[in-house]
Nucleic acid binder design. Structure first.
Length: 118
DNA sequence: GGTTTGACCCTAA
DNA sequence: ATTAGGGCCAAAC
């Protein structure tokens, strides 16, 4: 591929772009696909540096609990939830925080939708 | 070049 | 089951 695989940021962005529409992936999962399962923080950091006109579906990336962890950054949590709803993902409002049904929208990692048993 | 922070995750008590 | 603390990788000061 013509992507810069030497840069972990590029791999992270590539993994995020790989997320199918209507599904959400966790930071740790994206980091694992990027090659570092423990670099979940780097994922959020890289996404935070993305421009508003980016083609990266950063709104499809949530934490392990399925909650949006934007807090007070460039964009409010409502913005991400709004985009997710536009994608077909149901966002539940809980105590001011936004949660997504990882049981249904939790991306497995390769387009194969479903919940893995633990 | 060392220190601190960060859109997190995991393990232990 | 819940709460607390440490760890990880990378960039900014």
């Amino acid at each position: 591929m013509a992507d810069d695989e030497g840069n972990i940021s590029a791999r992270i962005l590539n993994a995020v772009k790989n997320i199918p529409r209507g599904y959400v992936a966790s930071y740790g999962h994206i980091a694992a696909l990027a090659g570092s399962p423990r670099a979940a923080r780097v994922v959020g950091w890289t996404l935070g540096a993305l421009p508003p006109e980016t083609d990266i579906p950063w709104h499809r990336v949530v934490n392990k609990d399925g909650y949006i962890t934007i807090e007070n950054l460039s964009y409010p949590k409502e913005e991400q939830a709004r985009m997710l709803e536009a994608e077909g993902v149901l966002v539940q409002r809980r105590e001011g925080l936004l949660q997504i049904d990882r049981n249904q929208f939790g991306w497995k990692g390769r387009g194969e939708a479903g919940l893995e048993k633990k």
